[in-house]
């Protein structure tokens, strides 16, 4: 296989994997803390992309300002959807299926509102207006300014989020709620307040990821919905509620969809139209053979290491 193609698919894997990680972390956060598999997460991603698009058409071309704007708007929509839909529902002590259906419904409503608006203002398949520049070029690789925005921004946000989760009181409260809700309440964790922060983080990260996605490729009202399957694959691969697992899962999905796909295409002649099936295959394989995902694996190592430490 030509080195150019190989390197190009690796670069794409890294780029897409980073975006999946941002999207999946928000999804895992709501899943772990609020205990809701939020299918409307997809529409928050789309919304983020469109906020960036509209802002760029209005002449905003500072990327940082654009990302901050996206974070604020999608975080606000996430908080609103909690206040308007999930919280009133929760008071009726619904089953998880009710909540999943509600999130589906909310997602559909948001999606078709977006369709209407996009149609009305003719924003189908547009790209965010950020001038494309080549920042690095060699015989085998071309890296644009977009690469240098997408990957480091994602990594910085992932690092900030893990610092927040691991080293702040809010982070410990979130993890405590994820781990054992009743005990967290006994310990005085204010559930409502932590939920709001969770929705802000999950929604905001989805918006930023959507904006970066929109910079990297063209967008339409289905953008988030198409990405969310890969994002769910990353979450499932990460063991559903583990943050480290989710990040790893995101890069594995990114690699499978790009690097592995490239290999399959080159050596087995598999058509690229097969790509959307890859996340489904990952989900099914993981659920069949390793429902605990990647983390069980790592916990296993850790347990063994500790056992070795404690009884030498």
């Amino acid at each position: 296989m030509p080195t150019v193609l190989l390197i190009d698919s690796l670069v794409r894997s890294l780029q897409v994997g980073s975006l999946y990680a941002l999207m999946a972390l928000g999804l895992t956060l709501t899943l772990a803390v609020v205990k809701l598999p939020n299918f409307a997460h997809a529409e928050l991603i789309t919304l983020g992309a469109y906020v960036a698009l509209v802002a760029s058409f209005w002449g905003l071309n500072n990327l940082l300002a654009m990302l901050v704007l996206c974070f604020i708007v999608t975080a606000a929509v996430a908080v609103l959807s909690y206040k308007a839909v999930y919280k009133p529902l929760e008071r009726r002590k619904p089953s998880i299926y009710t909540m999943i259906l509600a999130s589906f419904a909310l997602g559909l409503i948001l999606r078709y509102v977006l369709f209407l608006l996009v149609d009305r203002f003719d924003f189908f398949d547009k790209r965010i207006k950020i001038p494309l520049e080549i920042w690095y070029q060699s015989k085998t690789m071309i890296l644009t300014n977009i690469f240098f925005w997408v990957v480091p921004t994602s990594l910085i946000l992932i690092i900030l989020l893990s610092l927040l989760l691991n080293y702040t009181n809010l982070g410990r409260e979130m993890r405590a709620l994820a781990d054992n809700r009743a005990l967290a309440r006994v310990q005085g964790v204010q559930v409502e307040r932590v939920y709001y922060f969770t929705w802000i983080l999950a929604g905001g990260l989805a918006g930023v990821a959507g904006a970066l996605w929109g910079i990297y490729t063209s967008i339409n009202p289905l953008t988030g919905w198409l990405a969310i399957l890969s994002v769910f694959a990353a979450t499932v691969l990460g063991g559903m509620t583990s943050f480290v697992g989710t990040i790893l899962g995101a890069y594995v999905v990114g690699l499978s969809e790009n690097f592995v796909m490239q290999l399959l295409n080159h050596y087995l002649g598999l058509d690229f139209s097969f790509k959307p099936a890859i996340p489904f295959i990952i989900i099914i394989l993981v659920l069949l053979f390793r429902p605990q995902g990647l983390t069980g694996f790592m916990d296993g190592f850790r347990t063994r290491a500790i056992r070795r430490q404690t009884n030498p």
């Binding site: 410990r172 993890r175 781990d179 054992n180 005990l183 967290a184 309440r185 006994v186 005085g188």
Partner: peptide, 30 residues
């Protein structure tokens, strides 16, 4: 429930009385 500890009460449940996925130190820091 989350406001009862402010009244000077503490409770050690019979089961699941620690945050099992967190480190001991993080449990205490919480």
């Amino acid at each position: 429930t989350e406001n009862i500890c402010k009244r000077g009460l503490a409770y050690v449940p019979q089961r699941q009385n620690i945050f099992a996925t967190m480190t001991v130190r993080d449990n205490l820091l919480l």
